[in-house]
Design a protein around this nucleic acid. Sequence first.
RNA 1: GUGAGCGUAGCUCAAUAGGUAGAGCUCCUGACUGUGGCUCAGGUGGUUGAGGGUUCAAGUCCCUUCGCUCACCCCA
Length: 428
Amino acid sequence: MVAQVLKSMQGKVQAVKGTRDLLPPDTAVWAAVESTARRIFGSYGYEEIRTPILEETDLFVRSVGESTDIVGKEMYSFSDRKGRNLSLRPESTASVVRAFVQHGLQNAPLPRKLFYIGPQFRYERPQKGRYRQFHQIGAELLGDPGPETDAELILMLVRFLTELGFEELVVELNSVGESESRAAYREGLQEFLEPHRSSLSSDSQRRLDENPLRILDSKSPVDRELLEGAPVLLDYLTDTSREHFDRVQSLLSQEHVSYRIEPRLVRGLDYYTRTVFEIVSEDLGAQNAIVGGGRYDGLVEKLGGPAIPGIGFAIGEDRLVETLPAEFVDRVEPEAPVFVIGVGDALGGEALSVAELLRGEEFIVIAEMSGRSMKAALKRADRMEARWALLIGDEEIANGTVTVRDLEQGEQSSISRSEIVEYMESVR
RNA sequence: GUGAGCGUAGCUCAAUAGGUAGAGCUCCUGACUGUGGCUCAGGUGGUUGAGGGUUCAAGUCCCUUCGCUCACCCCA
């Protein structure tokens, strides 16, 4: 222990395993993705909610489910100085619902549409598209049980992704029914697989007891073969769930959304009911889900609120950015800056003043105010991909001018100091 | 938690049978007292991820550990 502390004091401190720094220019891409989400979601009437990253552990135990892997072994949990059991949030739906109940938002007009953007934490072995601190852009709609709502939510998602330049994405769709029918199916599946228990992969043998539905999307070829002829979740749906699901499909068809029914699509969180969906990308390796979501009609009640239905989704922002179409990334290029150079004795003040003037007109301005060499300063201007260089030296001060150099054309002209803003506006 | 591969300068990589660490790019400076991109010269930068072992000698071999990558698992 002491040795470890000493080592960490001496060695280079680095980012915690599974976390990473986002540096420019990547941060600009992330910001562009997020502002697109705000714009699109906003047009559907969604408003932003920001909930704490820290929550009582019990919140996730009750919502996500005690037997899920997320709660069972992936949470960053600890007790604080007063012995409260806290966890870094592994997802945000539970927090949004908690906030909804806590603030009595059911008394405001329903349905309520909320979106969030922020970091989530799960203790897993990092790999491609999977980090211990990852980021989600999510949306939740509380208070409308209708299938039209499901369709609208998916339409919003598709519109958002289309806006980012995605073209070939297919929505994978399924219905897990209400909790009673899911329990019935769970038993049916267990009965079907039990005789073949010893043939199942070791992972699935474990799942057979703990979470049999997860066997459905096992990657083991043996498991997949055994599943041929297994009962299908859709056959266990109640009539109302079945009608709901059919209606969602016909609405999606009506709006020309390409979707595919995936009878084996199940989700890892316990709160889902009825409609569940996923969007996967081929070029993400094993961690291919960029969006996951579904309806959760019992969750608000489970967290101590009224019986209000809900539906939502979460987008894996890290994965989304990794697969972003190049056209979108290219468009993120920021406006080229103006580079103001003050060279000579005590001319920094004048450079600062000119820079401030231009900033007032929303130019992006980098000022080098204590330069000693014009050459070196221009070199830096070039490297920073500046479009214009404004030179201020003894000569300019004497004449009351600023020399404006067009760094692309290699031409320059002498502009009166009082007309500099006007001139820059004209060539902008 | 399990398995595999990989860790040499900020980046990409060298270093013959173990012989005491080098190149390109980048960065800084100068050639060029106030005019960029090119060229040339010079410089900064590494306890070879860390710790231990074998050896006269370890970047190289052995062990441990940390990290990265990918897959299982899980999911966004």
